[in-house]
Each structure stands twice: as structure tokens, then as C-alpha cells.
């Protein structure tokens, strides 16, 4: 890879109790590209994603070994503040999780936590990021309504705006379109493609066609192991491992 990687994962293993969810994963994730993690359900895609912002914490029988470097900083180092790590990343989950508050407060939530108290500035931030998520026009007249009244597609874009508002460097998407209708899915995909100009995007999906549409870089996970990874065209056109080929042709899913 010619570019400097944004995230480096070294020999990462995760155990839930005695079960091993991830086995010795080592991969560099390129800066300002869309990396798509594919693989059958239960292969550890989501676990891997959640490790990146430490939502997988070594607690209650969970064991994490190996290292993850974000901007050359080891995020599982006990000295690192977890909120500092998480602030660097925006998360889009499978089902949009709007916070139980107004549309405005959903976006302002992060900036407020991080100390932004100026009302006028907050207003600007909210507008800016709602624009960026292409939601502003639809909600500008009802910012004080509970966010739960939005449609699911709008909620997912709200979650995107909310994530962007903490000024992350990385966007994490955990099957971000799985609860959405085709139109909203396309909408979210477009946003992700626009975002890679400024952000490193990592998306988990089990929809191969989606991976083909948006991926610059592909990582294929199977039963907790990283089988193959590389630039998207290469992996799709010419998979090296038989299991990758089997997955891409639909023999295993």
C-alpha cells in the first residue's frame, strides 16, 4: 500500500468466555478510503468493528489480545481515555438508534458533551451536519420534535449527522442499510461515498452488491479469521483463497 494506513490492527483476538470470536487478525486499514468488511453472519465482522472504538471491552468474560493502533496510538492501552478514542469515530448501527430527545438535541448531543455551550454555535453545527447528511431540508421546520417520529431512513441519516457532529476521523458502519428500504439505502450509500473524501470509512455488510458498489478495499472474514484482504477490484476479480471465491460466488453465505 502506497498510503499511510489510518488504523493498524495487529494480531487481534477476542474471546467471549471460552468462545473465540476473532483469531489473530492483522490488517492495515487505508486512510480516506471505504473499507468494507464482508463475510457470512457470525463470522466476527461486527465484533471487529466494535473493537475499533472499544465498544468491545475486556469485561465479564470478554478477553481482548493484540493491538489496535489508530493514528499510531494503541487504543487498548489502559492509559488511553476511552471517550477520546470513541470521539474519533462515528458509528452507524444496524437499526438506527436515535436518542430519546428532539432532532436538534440528537445532533447537539455530542458537541455539548465535548464542551460546546454557545447556543449560536450549536445551532450552526446542527444545521451544518444535517445538511451534510442531506436531512436538513426535511426537518428544518420541526427540529424540536422527538427524533423517534422520523421515518427509519431519516433516522439513519440523523444518526449519521449526529456521528459527524463530534468531528470524527473515522466512520464505522455496522450493516447501516439493513433496516432501510432500497431508496434510503441508496441515499446512505451515496453519503458514505461522498464522505470518503474527508473520512476513513469502514463498513460491515453481508450484501455483496453493496460491497461492490462502495468498496475501495475489502476484508473477508470467515469464522473469526481474516481470510483475504486487498483492493476491492483485485479481490472481486481474482480472489486468491478458495473460501473467498466460494463466498463471492454464493456457495457459502
Amino acid at each position: 500500500m502506497e498510503q499511510k494506513p489510518h488504523i493498524r490492527i495487529q494480531d487481534l483476538s477476542v474471546f467471549f468466555g471460552r468462545q473465540r470470536a476473532l483469531k489473530n487478525i492483522t490488517i492495515d486499514i487505508p486512510d480516506k478510503k471505504i473499507t468494507v468488511i464482508i463475510g457470512p453472519s457470525g463470522c466476527g465482522k461486527t465484533t471487529l468493528l466494535k473493537c475499533l472504538n472499544r465498544l468491545v471491552e475486556p469485561l465479564d468474560g470478554v478477553k481482548v489480545s493484540g493491538k489496535i493502533f489508530v493514528d499510531e496510538e494503541d487504543i487498548y492501552d489502559p492509559k488511553v481515555e476511552v471517550t477520546h478514542i470513541r470521539k474519533k469515530m462515528g458509528l452507524l448501527s444496524q437499526k438506527p438508534q436515535v436518542l430519546p430527545m428532539s432532532i436538534y438535541d440528537n445532533v447537539a448531543y455530542g458537541p455539548r458533551l465535548h464542551g460546546q455551550k454557545n447556543k449560536k454555535k450549536l445551532g450552526q453545527i446542527v444545521e451544518h451536519y444535517l445538511q451534510m447528511a442531506k436531512l436538513w431540508e426535511e426537518v428544518k421546520d420541526r427540529l424540536s420534535e422527538p427524533a423517534s417520529r422520523l421515518s427509519v431512513g431519516q433516522q439513519q441519516r440523523l444518526c449519521l449527522a449526529r456521528g459527524l457532529a463530534v468531528e470524527p476521523e473515522i466512520i464505522l458502519g455496522d450493516e447501516p442499510t439493513s433496516a432501510l428500504d432500497p431508496q434510503s439505502s441508496q441515499n446512505v450509500e451515496k453519503r458514505l461515498i461522498e464522505l470518503k473524501n474527508d473520512y476513513t470509512v469502514i463498513v460491515v455488510t453481508h450484501i455483496l452488491r453493496q460491497a461492490k458498489r462502495i468498496a475501495d478495499y475489502i476484508a473477508f472474514l470467515y469464522m473469526g479469521e481474516l481470510i483475504e484482504h486487498g483492493p476491492a477490484e483485485g479481490v472481486f476479480a481474482n480472489p486468491k483463497d478458495p473460501r473467498t471465491r466460494a463466498y463471492l460466488t454464493g456457495e457459502i453465505s
Binding site: S93, L99, M101, L113, L172
Partner: peptide, 27 residues
């Protein structure tokens, strides 16, 4: 309350207590 909702708040850099106060109790 779904764990994913707490994750949403945590992933924005909220501490556990902030998440409890603003999200869990409210929900």
C-alpha cells in the same frame, strides 16, 4: 432498553454516567 442505544451514546464519546443520565433514564 436495547444495548445498541447505549452504544450509540457511548460511541459519541459520552461517558457511562452521561449515557445513563441523558439516555437510559430518559428512555
Amino acid at each position: 432498553i436495547p444495548y445498541e442505544l447505549r452504544e450509540a451514546s457511548l460511541s459519541l464519546g459520552a461517558t457511562k454516567w452521561e449515557t445513563v443520565k441523558h439516555v437510559v433514564l430518559k428512555k
